[in-house]
Amino acid sequence: NITNLCPFDEVFNATRFASVYAWNRKRISNCVADYSVLYNLAPFFTFKCYGVSPTKLNDLCFTNVYADSFVIRGDEVRQIAPGQTGNIADYNYKLPDDFTGCVIAWNSNKLDSKVSGNYNYLYRLFRKSNLKPFERDISTEIYQAGNKPCNGVAGFNCYFPLRSYSFRPTYGVGHQPYRVVVLSFELLHAPATVCGPKKST
């Protein structure tokens, strides 16, 4: 009989979030998941669920729940959905087409922007091929755009693959930082360890 609440607040209220290319994953298990708490945590810009209804979450049980978190800019949030393409979905964080879970995003301009520009958040701009779903690539190998090998040196047709967002508070919403948490629900042929409040007794 599990009584402890799932530590969603640790994920959502973390002081620092990860850069999207090096997104963070927390496995959540053996706890009571009260998803209604999430609705009250922040004024969400996005709370979209796929393959599951957000209002039914509190009635369900899962084997595992994974919470992935990272920062992107406002106009990239739409890429965090099944079947999307674009720089983020292709080279940084890719959801599977049959994704079961929820994408939660909110504006973090007050936390993640600086007047002089916050350069701490990076994204991958160049990659030889698209990522597979939930693949994480943290390599910093020089990207070869031409025929000549780069031998690890940046220059003509040889690019450092990561680029930094420079978040400034005066930017338009599309270029402001957004914190994203992706909850993916895993149903294996194994005992369910993460249940809503109704199912945990």
Rank of each mutant, 00 (worst) to 15 (best):
E10F: 07
P133A: 10
V71Y: 01
P191K: 14
Y178G: 01
Y93M: 02
S108C: 06
F156C: 04
N107V: 03
K199V: 15
R127H: 05
T140Q: 07
A145N: 06
P149R: 10
H189Y: 11
V181Y: 04
R127N: 03
Q144N: 15
S108R: 03
R179G: 00
R124C: 00
S164D: 04
C49W: 09
R124E: 00
T55E: 15
N151S: 11
V103T: 06
R168Q: 04
Y119W: 06
L95T: 04
L162E: 00
G51R: 13
P54S: 14
R127E: 00
R27W: 09
F12M: 09
L131Y: 03
V65F: 12
F126R: 03
V77H: 04
T170S: 07
V115F: 08
F134C: 05
A67I: 10
V115L: 12
Y165K: 01
N130S: 15
F99I: 04
S164Q: 07
Q84R: 11
Y143F: 13
C158K: 02
F70R: 02
E10D: 12
A105C: 07
T3C: 07
L183A: 03
K199S: 15
K132P: 06
L162D: 00
F126L: 06
V173T: 13
T3M: 11
G51C: 05
V11R: 04
T201R: 14
V173M: 14
T46V: 13
V32P: 06
D68V: 04
K56M: 12
I72G: 00
S116Y: 08
P169K: 05
A22G: 08
D68I: 04
Y66F: 12
C61A: 07
I142Y: 07
F156W: 07
Y159N: 01
Y121A: 09
Q176S: 02
G172I: 00
L188N: 15
N157P: 01
R25T: 06
N157Q: 02
K148E: 14
L183P: 00
L162M: 07
E76D: 07
P7N: 15
N92A: 03
V32L: 10
G152K: 10
Q176P: 00
I138W: 06
P43A: 10
L125P: 15
F70C: 00
D98M: 09
V153M: 14
V20H: 00
Y39N: 15
T46M: 13
R25A: 02
N120K: 11
V194R: 12
F126E: 00
N120V: 08
R78E: 09
A89K: 03
L188S: 15
A190L: 14
H175P: 00
F17L: 06
P133Y: 06
T140M: 13
Q176T: 01
K26N: 08
Y143D: 00
N87M: 15
A192C: 11
F99P: 01
Y66V: 14
Y159I: 00
N58W: 10
P191I: 09
Y171P: 00
A190F: 10
G83D: 08
W23Y: 09
G74K: 05
A67V: 11
F70T: 01
P96D: 06
N30G: 10
V77Q: 05
T3R: 12
A67G: 03
H189D: 15
Y178F: 15
N130Y: 10
S129I: 10
V71P: 00
I88G: 01
N13F: 11
R179P: 00
T100E: 08
S200F: 14
S139D: 09
I88K: 03
L122N: 12
V115W: 12
A22Y: 09
A42Q: 15
V153F: 11
P7M: 10
N13T: 10
C61W: 08
V153C: 07
C158G: 01
L5S: 13
V173D: 11
T15A: 12
W106A: 04
K56C: 08
L57E: 07
F156D: 04
S36W: 07
K148T: 14
Q176D: 00
G174K: 06
T170E: 02
Q176I: 01
V181T: 05
E141P: 07
V20F: 02
K198T: 14
Y165S: 00
T15D: 12
G83V: 06
G152F: 07
R179S: 00
I2Q: 14
S29T: 14
D9F: 10
K48W: 06
F99N: 01
D34K: 08
E76T: 03
R16D: 15
T46F: 10
K148V: 14
Y35L: 14
D34H: 09
Y119D: 12
L187S: 15
N58D: 14
L95D: 00
Y121E: 00
V32K: 12
Y171N: 02
S29H: 14
N1Y: 10
S53I: 09
W106K: 05
Y178D: 01
P197Y: 15
G174H: 05
T15V: 11
P149E: 12
F134K: 06
N118H: 05
I88T: 05
Y66Q: 09
T85K: 13
C150P: 00
N1R: 11
P43W: 09
F160R: 14
T140D: 11
T46R: 13
N24S: 15
R124A: 00
Q79Y: 05
S166W: 05
I104S: 06
F12L: 10
T3G: 11
F47E: 06
C158A: 01
I72A: 04
V180E: 00
D137Q: 03
V181A: 05
G117F: 03
F126G: 03
V71C: 05
G117D: 03
V37T: 14
N157T: 02
T55F: 12
H189R: 13
T170R: 05
V115G: 08
F47W: 15
G155V: 03
C158Y: 01
R127W: 02
C49S: 03
V20C: 03
P54I: 14
N120S: 12
A42P: 15
P133Q: 05
R25F: 02
R179H: 02
L183H: 02
V115C: 05
K26S: 09
Q84W: 07
P82I: 04
Y66C: 08
R78K: 14
V182M: 01
I88M: 04
L5I: 13
S113V: 02
K132M: 12
V20D: 00
V180N: 01
Y21T: 05
F126K: 04
N120H: 13
R73H: 00
R127A: 06
K198P: 13
L187M: 14
W106S: 04
F62L: 11
V153W: 09
F8M: 09
Y50T: 04
Y93R: 02
V32F: 10
A192K: 13
I2T: 14
S184P: 03
S108H: 01
P82L: 03
Y93N: 00
P197R: 15
V194A: 12
Y21C: 04
V77C: 05
K132S: 11
V71R: 02
V173G: 07
I2P: 13
V153I: 13
R163P: 10
V11E: 05
V11I: 15
G174I: 03
P191E: 13
C49P: 02
P82Q: 02
C6M: 06
G51F: 05
P43R: 12
T100R: 13
G83W: 08
Y178K: 03
V37P: 11
S164F: 06
P177W: 02
G196Q: 11
E10M: 09
S36N: 13
S29P: 10
R136Y: 05
P54A: 14
R73Q: 07
Q176L: 03
D75V: 05
F156V: 08
N58S: 13
H189C: 08
L111D: 11
P161M: 04
E141I: 09
A192F: 14
R78L: 08
E10G: 09
G155A: 07
N151H: 12
D68Y: 05
D98L: 08
I142V: 11
P191R: 13
V180T: 07
T85Y: 09
W23G: 01
N120I: 07
L38R: 05
W106H: 03
P149W: 07
Y178E: 02
Y35F: 15
Y165I: 00
L183I: 10
D137P: 02
A81P: 00
A190D: 13
R124M: 00
Y121I: 07
K94C: 04
P177I: 01
P197W: 15
G51K: 11
L122M: 15
K148D: 12
S200N: 14
V65G: 12
A67C: 09
F134D: 06
S53D: 15
R73K: 11
D97E: 13
Y91N: 08
S19C: 06
R16C: 11
S139W: 04
H175N: 04
L111K: 13
C195S: 08
F44Q: 15
T85N: 12
V11S: 05
Q84Y: 07
